[in-house]
Protein backbone atom coordinates (compact mmCIF):
# COMPACT_ATOMS: atom_id res chain seq x y z
CA UNK A 1 0.00 0.00 0.00
CA UNK A 2 0.95 3.57 -0.36
CA UNK A 3 3.41 4.26 2.43
CA UNK A 4 3.92 7.91 1.62
CA UNK A 5 0.94 9.19 3.51
CA UNK A 6 0.43 8.97 7.25
CA UNK A 7 -3.28 8.50 6.73
CA UNK A 8 -5.01 7.63 3.54
CA UNK A 9 -8.74 7.26 3.11
CA UNK A 10 -9.96 5.61 -0.06
CA UNK A 11 -13.45 5.45 -1.39
CA UNK A 12 -15.00 5.56 2.08
CA UNK A 13 -18.76 5.24 2.12
CA UNK A 14 -20.70 5.27 5.38
CA UNK A 15 -24.42 4.73 5.28
CA UNK A 16 -27.25 4.95 7.76
CA UNK A 17 -30.25 2.70 7.81
CA UNK A 18 -33.49 4.63 7.85
CA UNK A 19 -36.61 2.50 7.97
CA UNK A 20 -34.89 -0.46 6.42
CA UNK A 21 -33.13 1.40 3.62
CA UNK A 22 -29.46 2.29 3.58
CA UNK A 23 -28.69 5.89 2.73
CA UNK A 24 -25.08 6.97 2.33
CA UNK A 25 -24.17 9.85 4.65
CA UNK A 26 -20.73 10.14 3.13
CA UNK A 27 -19.85 8.70 -0.25
CA UNK A 28 -16.59 7.90 -1.96
CA UNK A 29 -14.39 9.93 0.35
CA UNK A 30 -10.79 10.07 -0.82
CA UNK A 31 -8.32 11.97 1.23
CA UNK A 32 -4.88 11.74 2.67
CA UNK A 33 -2.92 13.34 5.43
CA UNK A 34 0.83 13.71 5.69
CA UNK A 35 3.01 14.15 8.72
CA UNK A 36 2.91 17.64 10.24
CA UNK A 37 0.07 18.60 7.98
CA UNK A 38 -3.24 20.20 8.85
CA UNK A 39 -6.11 19.28 6.62
CA UNK A 40 -9.28 21.26 7.08
CA UNK A 41 -12.61 19.61 6.36
CA UNK A 42 -15.08 22.35 5.58
CA UNK A 43 -18.75 22.32 4.85
CA UNK A 44 -22.21 23.17 6.05
CA UNK A 45 -23.90 21.36 8.89
CA UNK A 46 -24.93 17.89 7.82
CA UNK A 47 -22.47 17.61 4.96
CA UNK A 48 -20.72 14.60 6.49
CA UNK A 49 -17.63 16.14 8.06
CA UNK A 50 -18.12 14.54 11.43
CA UNK A 51 -19.27 11.25 9.94
CA UNK A 52 -16.03 11.12 7.98
CA UNK A 53 -13.99 11.64 11.14
CA UNK A 54 -16.02 9.13 13.12
CA UNK A 55 -15.69 6.59 10.30
CA UNK A 56 -11.91 6.98 10.35
CA UNK A 57 -11.98 6.30 14.11
CA UNK A 58 -14.53 3.52 13.56
CA UNK A 59 -16.86 5.15 16.03
CA UNK A 60 -19.97 5.09 13.88
CA UNK A 61 -22.76 3.63 16.02
CA UNK A 62 -23.82 0.33 14.51
CA UNK A 63 -26.75 0.07 13.97
CA UNK A 64 -28.02 2.33 12.46
CA UNK A 65 -24.70 3.28 10.87
CA UNK A 66 -22.56 1.09 8.69
CA UNK A 67 -19.29 1.57 6.85
CA UNK A 68 -20.29 0.19 3.49
CA UNK A 69 -17.01 0.33 1.64
CA UNK A 70 -13.61 1.86 1.61
CA UNK A 71 -10.22 1.64 3.21
CA UNK A 72 -8.54 3.75 5.86
CA UNK A 73 -4.82 3.22 5.87
CA UNK A 74 -2.74 4.46 8.73
CA UNK A 75 0.91 3.87 7.94
CA UNK A 76 -0.11 1.09 5.59
CA UNK A 77 -2.50 -0.70 7.97
CA UNK A 78 -6.16 -0.78 7.02
CA UNK A 79 -7.98 0.34 10.14
CA UNK A 80 -11.36 -0.79 8.87
CA UNK A 81 -10.33 -4.46 8.84
CA UNK A 82 -8.54 -4.44 12.19
CA UNK A 83 -10.12 -6.45 14.98
CA UNK A 84 -11.86 -4.22 17.53
CA UNK A 85 -9.23 -5.05 20.17
CA UNK A 86 -6.40 -3.63 18.09
CA UNK A 87 -8.44 -0.68 16.93
CA UNK A 88 -8.98 0.25 20.57
CA UNK A 89 -5.23 0.44 21.06
CA UNK A 90 -5.03 2.95 18.23
CA UNK A 91 -7.87 5.14 19.42
CA UNK A 92 -6.75 7.72 21.93
CA UNK A 93 -3.21 6.45 21.60
CA UNK A 94 -2.07 6.86 17.99
CA UNK A 95 -5.09 8.79 16.85
CA UNK A 96 -7.14 10.99 19.12
CA UNK A 97 -10.21 13.10 18.77
CA UNK A 98 -11.16 16.46 20.20
CA UNK A 99 -14.86 17.07 20.42
CA UNK A 100 -16.98 20.12 19.86
CA UNK A 101 -18.72 20.38 23.21
CA UNK A 102 -16.26 20.94 26.05
CA UNK A 103 -19.14 21.44 28.46
CA UNK A 104 -20.47 17.91 28.11
CA UNK A 105 -17.48 15.92 26.91
CA UNK A 106 -15.93 15.58 30.35
CA UNK A 107 -17.27 13.19 32.96
CA UNK A 108 -18.76 15.40 35.68
CA UNK A 109 -17.99 13.01 38.54
CA UNK A 110 -14.31 12.39 37.87
CA UNK A 111 -11.47 14.81 38.50
CA UNK A 112 -9.94 16.52 35.54
CA UNK A 113 -6.53 15.16 36.45
CA UNK A 114 -7.80 11.61 36.54
CA UNK A 115 -9.43 12.00 33.15
CA UNK A 116 -6.20 13.24 31.64
CA UNK A 117 -4.05 10.50 33.11
CA UNK A 118 -6.55 7.76 32.40
CA UNK A 119 -5.52 7.36 28.77
CA UNK A 120 -1.87 7.22 29.80
CA UNK A 121 -2.55 4.48 32.31
CA UNK A 122 -4.74 2.61 29.87
CA UNK A 123 -2.63 2.79 26.73
CA UNK A 124 0.89 3.18 27.96
CA UNK A 125 2.36 1.11 30.69
CA UNK A 126 3.11 3.87 33.16
CA UNK A 127 2.78 3.91 36.92
CA UNK A 128 0.27 6.04 38.77
CA UNK A 129 2.91 8.49 39.91
CA UNK A 130 4.46 8.82 36.48
CA UNK A 131 1.06 9.26 34.85
CA UNK A 132 0.24 12.06 37.26
CA UNK A 133 3.55 13.74 36.50
CA UNK A 134 2.91 13.50 32.77
CA UNK A 135 -0.67 14.71 33.16
CA UNK A 136 0.41 17.81 35.08
CA UNK A 137 3.08 18.43 32.47
CA UNK A 138 0.46 18.31 29.72
CA UNK A 139 -1.87 20.54 31.73
CA UNK A 140 0.95 23.07 31.88
CA UNK A 141 1.48 22.72 28.17
CA UNK A 142 -2.14 23.47 27.39
CA UNK A 143 -1.69 26.46 29.70
CA UNK A 144 -4.06 25.60 32.51
CA UNK A 145 -2.91 27.91 35.27
CA UNK A 146 -1.57 26.29 38.47
CA UNK A 147 -1.99 22.85 36.98
CA UNK A 148 -0.86 20.79 39.96
CA UNK A 149 -3.43 22.48 42.17
CA UNK A 150 -6.24 22.13 39.62
CA UNK A 151 -5.41 18.47 39.03
CA UNK A 152 -7.94 17.42 41.65
CA UNK A 153 -10.68 19.78 40.50
CA UNK A 154 -13.86 18.68 38.80
CA UNK A 155 -15.04 19.76 35.35
CA UNK A 156 -17.75 22.03 36.74
CA UNK A 157 -15.04 24.13 38.36
CA UNK A 158 -13.60 24.99 34.93
CA UNK A 159 -14.73 27.51 32.35
CA UNK A 160 -15.59 26.50 28.78
CA UNK A 161 -12.23 27.52 27.38
CA UNK A 162 -10.38 25.74 30.15
CA UNK A 163 -12.43 22.61 29.62
CA UNK A 164 -11.50 22.66 25.98
CA UNK A 165 -7.88 22.86 27.09
CA UNK A 166 -8.51 19.84 29.26
CA UNK A 167 -10.03 18.03 26.28
CA UNK A 168 -6.94 18.87 24.26
CA UNK A 169 -4.73 17.66 27.10
CA UNK A 170 -6.66 14.37 27.20
CA UNK A 171 -6.35 13.92 23.46
CA UNK A 172 -2.64 14.72 23.46
CA UNK A 173 -1.74 12.77 26.61
CA UNK A 174 -0.50 9.76 24.67
CA UNK A 175 1.19 11.88 22.01
CA UNK A 176 -0.91 10.65 19.11
CA UNK A 177 0.33 10.99 15.56
CA UNK A 178 -3.02 12.12 14.25
CA UNK A 179 -5.50 14.48 15.86
CA UNK A 180 -9.06 14.68 14.63
CA UNK A 181 -10.47 17.97 15.86
CA UNK A 182 -14.22 18.13 15.36
CA UNK A 183 -15.13 21.81 15.52
CA UNK A 184 -13.12 22.25 18.72
CA UNK A 185 -13.76 25.97 18.92
CA UNK A 186 -17.35 26.26 17.77
CA UNK A 187 -18.77 26.36 21.28
CA UNK A 188 -16.33 29.00 22.52
CA UNK A 189 -16.14 32.79 22.58
CA UNK A 190 -14.27 34.37 19.70
CA UNK A 191 -11.38 35.52 21.89
CA UNK A 192 -11.06 32.07 23.44
CA UNK A 193 -11.32 30.52 19.97
CA UNK A 194 -8.22 32.35 18.89
CA UNK A 195 -6.31 31.21 21.97
CA UNK A 196 -7.34 27.59 21.50
CA UNK A 197 -6.44 27.66 17.80
CA UNK A 198 -3.08 29.15 18.56
CA UNK A 199 -2.53 26.53 21.25
CA UNK A 200 -3.47 23.69 18.92
CA UNK A 201 -1.18 24.95 16.20
CA UNK A 202 1.65 25.32 18.67
CA UNK A 203 1.21 21.86 20.18
CA UNK A 204 0.85 20.32 16.76
CA UNK A 205 4.21 21.75 15.79
CA UNK A 206 5.83 20.76 19.06
CA UNK A 207 4.59 17.15 18.96
CA UNK A 208 4.92 16.99 15.15
CA UNK A 209 1.42 15.68 14.74
CA UNK A 210 -0.88 15.70 11.77
CA UNK A 211 -4.33 17.10 12.21
CA UNK A 212 -7.68 16.89 10.50
CA UNK A 213 -9.55 19.99 11.52
CA UNK A 214 -13.28 20.00 11.00
CA UNK A 215 -14.97 23.36 10.87
CA UNK A 216 -17.46 25.48 9.03
CA UNK A 217 -15.56 28.63 9.76
CA UNK A 218 -13.49 29.67 6.75
CA UNK A 219 -11.62 32.25 8.77
CA UNK A 220 -10.22 29.47 10.94
CA UNK A 221 -9.38 27.45 7.85
CA UNK A 222 -7.31 30.28 6.43
CA UNK A 223 -5.33 30.64 9.61
CA UNK A 224 -4.69 27.02 10.53
CA UNK A 225 -4.88 24.71 7.50
CA UNK A 226 -2.27 23.58 5.00
CA UNK A 227 -4.81 21.99 2.71
CA UNK A 228 -8.57 22.19 2.58
CA UNK A 229 -11.19 19.65 1.59
CA UNK A 230 -14.60 21.13 0.97
CA UNK A 231 -17.50 18.76 1.54
CA UNK A 232 -21.02 18.99 0.31
CA UNK A 233 -23.84 16.48 0.64
CA UNK A 234 -21.56 13.69 1.84
CA UNK A 235 -18.94 14.14 -0.85
CA UNK A 236 -15.68 15.98 -1.15
CA UNK A 237 -16.26 18.56 -3.89
CA UNK A 238 -12.90 20.26 -3.88
CA UNK A 239 -9.47 19.70 -2.36
CA UNK A 240 -6.68 22.22 -2.64
CA UNK A 241 -3.77 23.79 -0.81
CA UNK A 242 -5.19 26.54 1.34
CA UNK A 243 -3.81 29.42 -0.76
CA UNK A 244 -5.13 28.02 -4.02
CA UNK A 245 -8.55 27.40 -2.57
CA UNK A 246 -8.98 30.94 -1.35
CA UNK A 247 -7.47 32.55 -4.41
CA UNK A 248 -9.01 30.50 -7.16
CA UNK A 249 -11.81 28.27 -5.96
CA UNK A 250 -12.99 26.09 -8.83
CA UNK A 251 -16.10 24.41 -7.55
CA UNK A 252 -19.19 26.63 -7.70
CA UNK A 253 -20.03 25.62 -4.13
CA UNK A 254 -16.63 26.67 -2.79
CA UNK A 255 -16.95 29.92 -4.65
CA UNK A 256 -20.34 30.67 -3.12
CA UNK A 257 -19.09 29.60 0.28
CA UNK A 258 -16.20 32.04 0.11
CA UNK A 259 -18.45 34.77 -1.12
CA UNK A 260 -20.77 34.19 1.83
CA UNK A 261 -18.05 35.03 4.37
CA UNK A 262 -19.02 38.35 5.92
CA UNK A 263 -16.36 41.01 5.48
CA UNK A 264 -15.90 43.85 7.89
CA UNK A 265 -13.48 45.69 5.62
CA UNK A 266 -16.03 46.20 2.88
CA UNK A 267 -19.15 48.23 3.13
CA UNK A 268 -21.75 45.70 2.09
CA UNK A 269 -25.45 46.33 2.32
CA UNK A 270 -26.53 42.75 2.14
CA UNK A 271 -24.78 39.54 3.16
CA UNK A 272 -24.62 36.99 0.38
CA UNK A 273 -25.76 33.44 0.97
CA UNK A 274 -26.43 30.24 -0.89
CA UNK A 275 -30.13 29.76 -1.47
CA UNK A 276 -31.66 26.45 -0.42
CA UNK A 277 -30.17 23.96 1.99
CA UNK A 278 -28.22 20.73 2.05
CA UNK A 279 -30.53 17.89 1.01
CA UNK A 280 -31.05 15.27 3.72
CA UNK A 281 -29.36 11.95 3.11
CA UNK A 282 -32.53 10.20 2.01
CA UNK A 283 -33.24 12.87 -0.62
CA UNK A 284 -29.91 13.22 -2.37
CA UNK A 285 -30.25 14.19 -6.02
CA UNK A 286 -29.11 11.43 -8.39
CA UNK A 287 -26.54 13.58 -10.15
CA UNK A 288 -24.33 16.24 -8.64
CA UNK A 289 -25.46 16.81 -5.06
CA UNK A 290 -25.02 20.53 -5.37
CA UNK A 291 -26.86 20.84 -8.69
CA UNK A 292 -30.22 22.02 -7.29
CA UNK A 293 -28.56 25.03 -5.70
CA UNK A 294 -25.99 25.68 -8.42
CA UNK A 295 -26.04 28.75 -10.68
CA UNK A 296 -24.04 27.03 -13.38
CA UNK A 297 -26.03 23.83 -13.43
CA UNK A 298 -26.47 22.14 -16.79
CA UNK A 299 -28.51 19.21 -17.91
CA UNK A 300 -25.69 16.72 -17.35
CA UNK A 301 -25.33 17.73 -13.72
CA UNK A 302 -28.79 16.42 -12.89
CA UNK A 303 -28.11 13.05 -14.47
CA UNK A 304 -24.63 12.15 -13.34
CA UNK A 305 -22.22 13.05 -10.61
CA UNK A 306 -18.77 14.16 -11.65
CA UNK A 307 -15.57 12.57 -10.32
CA UNK A 308 -13.08 14.26 -8.08
CA UNK A 309 -10.31 14.93 -10.61
CA UNK A 310 -7.13 17.02 -10.51
CA UNK A 311 -7.05 20.21 -12.47
CA UNK A 312 -4.73 20.21 -15.48
CA UNK A 313 -1.25 21.12 -14.30
CA UNK A 314 -2.31 21.21 -10.64
CA UNK A 315 -2.29 17.69 -9.22
CA UNK A 316 -2.91 18.92 -5.68
CA UNK A 317 -6.05 20.82 -6.62
CA UNK A 318 -8.92 18.47 -7.31
CA UNK A 319 -12.51 19.36 -8.14
CA UNK A 320 -15.72 17.41 -8.49
CA UNK A 321 -17.57 19.40 -11.13
CA UNK A 322 -18.42 18.95 -14.80
CA UNK A 323 -17.75 22.56 -15.39
CA UNK A 324 -14.69 22.62 -13.20
CA UNK A 325 -15.43 26.05 -11.99
CA UNK A 326 -15.14 27.68 -15.38
CA UNK A 327 -18.40 28.18 -17.22
CA UNK A 328 -16.60 29.09 -20.47
CA UNK A 329 -15.36 25.53 -20.77
CA UNK A 330 -18.82 23.98 -20.78
CA UNK A 331 -18.71 23.24 -24.50
CA UNK A 332 -15.76 20.88 -24.46
CA UNK A 333 -16.85 18.86 -21.41
CA UNK A 334 -18.53 15.49 -21.86
Amino acid sequence: MNQEHLLEVRNLTTAFRIQGNLFPAVRGIDLHLDRNETLALVGESGCGKSITALSIMRLIPQPPGEIVSGEVFMKGIDLLTLPEERMRKIRGNKMAMIFQEPMTSLNPVLTVGFQIMEALIYHQDVTNVKAKELAIEIMNQVKIPSASRRFKDYPHQFSGGQRQRVMIAMALACRPEIILADEPTTALDVTIQAQILYLLAELKREYSMAMIFITHNLGIVASIADRVAVMYGGEIVEVAPVGDLFEKPRHPYTEMLLRAVPRVDLNIEKLSYIPGQVPSIDRMPPGCHYAPRCDLRMELCDRQDADLVPLPGEPAHRVRCWIRGDSREIQDKP
Binding site: M57, L59, M87, R88, K89, I90, R91, G92, N93, A96, M97, F99, E101, T104, S105, L106, N107, P108, V109, L110, E118, A119, Y122, H123, M167, M170
Partner: peptide, 24 residues
Protein backbone atom coordinates in the same frame (compact mmCIF):
# COMPACT_ATOMS: atom_id res chain seq x y z
CA UNK B 1 -20.80 13.10 25.06
CA UNK B 2 -18.25 12.02 27.63
CA UNK B 3 -19.01 8.36 27.04
CA UNK B 4 -18.55 8.97 23.31
CA UNK B 5 -15.27 10.65 24.23
CA UNK B 6 -14.29 7.54 26.21
CA UNK B 7 -14.87 5.38 23.16
CA UNK B 8 -12.75 7.80 21.17
CA UNK B 9 -10.03 7.27 23.78
CA UNK B 10 -10.17 3.56 23.00
CA UNK B 11 -11.47 2.45 26.40
CA UNK B 12 -13.10 -0.96 26.62
CA UNK B 13 -16.79 -1.32 27.46
CA UNK B 14 -15.86 -2.84 30.82
CA UNK B 15 -13.72 0.13 31.72
CA UNK B 16 -16.33 2.62 30.53
CA UNK B 17 -18.94 0.90 32.65
CA UNK B 18 -16.83 0.63 35.81
CA UNK B 19 -14.95 3.91 35.71
CA UNK B 20 -17.28 6.26 33.88
CA UNK B 21 -20.83 4.99 34.25
CA UNK B 22 -20.66 3.49 37.75
CA UNK B 23 -19.62 6.65 39.66
CA UNK B 24 -22.48 8.47 37.96
Amino acid sequence: DYIEACRAMGFSDLRIMLVHVLPN
